[in-house]
């Protein structure tokens, strides 16, 4: 499997800037949930993300009422585990994806999903704003790069994420446009390890 590391072209910089701004808005709401248990902020996050999580679960093979319950579970998990969200390492949609995926495995396969050991430090209480914004922008760019892939390739990637592919089918996926995210995440881990020593 190969990955491309060049950033995608960005013909519509203004709209991209707006969407990255939107992602930063979700982070700000999430911090209000975390620090102030702000229910209005929670309701705003719920309005945006819960229907998408429900859509993701329906697409992954859950029936509509199960998907509804599950989206509720995911959003309540957001409330309970708010202090585990680290905006320097994940956008809010990425974090919610991981919760929804684990819930799906639990629900559809009745299996536990082992997670890696938490890093020995928690998310920094005041993450560096420039870093948070760069991460949100790169996540947006990644989304956009995936959206503009040839339909057959995009279809294969979607199928993998909706749990419709076997391992050997997944090993045939190539050319994921991972952009600069991987090196950013790698550096973030390095920096944190050094801070700890």
């Amino acid at each position: 499997m190969t990955t491309k590391d060049d950033s995608p072209p960005n013909p519509d910089a203004q709209s991209e800037g707006k969407k990255a701004g939107e992602a930063a808005k979700w982070v700000a709401l999430m911090i209000r949930v975390r620090d102030h248990r702000d229910r209005t902020a929670f309701a705003a996050l719920f309005g945006h993300f819960a229907p998408r999580i429900k859509g993701f679960l329906v697409r992954s093979g859950a029936d509509v009422s199960t998907a509804e319950e599950c989206a509720q579970d995911v959003m309540t998990t957001l409330w309970r585990k708010a202090d585990q969200f680290d905006p320097a390492r994940a956008s809010l949609s990425t974090w919610l994806f991981t919760i929804a995926r684990n819930r799906r495995i639990d629900l559809l396969r009745r299996e536990n999903r082992p997670e890696p050991q938490e890093l020995p430090w928690g998310p920094e209480p005041e993450p560096d704003q420039a870093e948070v914004i760069s991460l949100q922008q790169e996540t947006r760019q990644l989304g956009k790069a995936i959206a503009t892939l040839p339909p057959a390739q995009r279809d294969l990637i979607e199928k993998a994420y909706f749990g419709e592919l076997t391992q050997s089918e997944i090993s045939r996926i190539t050319g994921l446009p991972l952009g600069t995210i991987k090196s950013r995440l790698r550096l973030a881990l390095d920096r944190l390890r050094h801070t700890m020593k």
Partner: peptide
């Protein structure tokens, strides 16, 4: 870990684009 989190990011991007289903 960095690569696994990168693949999670792809999942987040897809979640953002997923057709919403009414609650």
């Amino acid at each position: 870990r960095a690569l696994a989190e990168t693949f999670d990011t792809v999942g987040g991007a897809l979640l953002e684009e997923t057709a919403a289903v009414g609650l």
